Amino acid sequence: TETREFDNEEEARKEAERLRRKGQDVQIRKKGNRWELRRT
């Protein structure tokens, strides 16, 4: 599992969408005042 953190939700969602188009399974969750993007 690979995780990346983003400062805002929009960036996290854009990156998640990009990875999903490549066929990756991605989850986003709020972590304090940041957003965590998890690739499984």
Results as ranks from 00 to 15, higher is better:
E2R: 09
E2G: 11
E2A: 12
E2Q: 10
T3N: 08
T3Y: 12
T3W: 15
T3H: 09
T3I: 13
T3E: 07
T3K: 09
R4S: 08
R4H: 09
R4A: 10
E5R: 06
E5Q: 09
F6R: 00
F6C: 03
F6N: 00
D7T: 07
N8H: 05
N8P: 00
N8I: 05
E9H: 07
E9K: 06
E9R: 07
E9D: 02
E9M: 08
E10I: 08
E11P: 01
E11W: 03
E11N: 04
E11S: 06
E11K: 04
A12K: 00
A12V: 05
A12G: 02
A12I: 02
R13G: 04
R13L: 14
R13Q: 13
R13H: 11
K14H: 09
K14N: 10
K14D: 09
E15W: 08
E15Q: 05
E15D: 02
E15M: 07
E15T: 05
A16V: 06
A16R: 04
A16E: 04
E17M: 08
E17W: 08
E17Y: 09
E17R: 10
E17K: 08
R18W: 07
R18F: 08
R18L: 10
L19W: 09
L19H: 04
L19M: 10
R20Q: 08
R20H: 06
R20P: 01
R20G: 04
R21W: 07
R21V: 08
R21I: 08
R21A: 14
K22D: 12
K22Q: 14
G23H: 03
G23T: 01
G23D: 03
Q24H: 14
Q24G: 05
Q24P: 01
Q24S: 07
D25Y: 13
V26Y: 09
V26E: 00
V26T: 05
V26R: 00
V26G: 01
V26N: 03
V26Q: 01
Q27S: 12
Q27N: 07
Q27W: 11
I28K: 00
I28E: 01
I28S: 01
I28N: 00
R29D: 06
R29N: 10
R29K: 10
R29C: 14
K30M: 06
K30S: 04
K30E: 04
K30N: 04
K30R: 11
K31M: 08
K31D: 03
K31G: 01
K31F: 06
G32M: 01
G32D: 06
G32I: 00
G32R: 02
G32T: 00
G32N: 06
G32K: 04
G32Y: 01
N33I: 04
R34G: 09
R34F: 09
W35F: 04
W35E: 02
W35Y: 05
W35S: 01
E36P: 02
E36F: 08
E36V: 12
L37P: 03
L37R: 01
L37D: 03
R38N: 10
R38W: 14
R38Y: 15
R38F: 15
R39W: 15
R39V: 15
R39D: 14
R39A: 15
R39T: 15
R39I: 15
T40P: 11
T40G: 09
T40S: 09
T40K: 10
T40E: 10
T40M: 12
T40R: 11
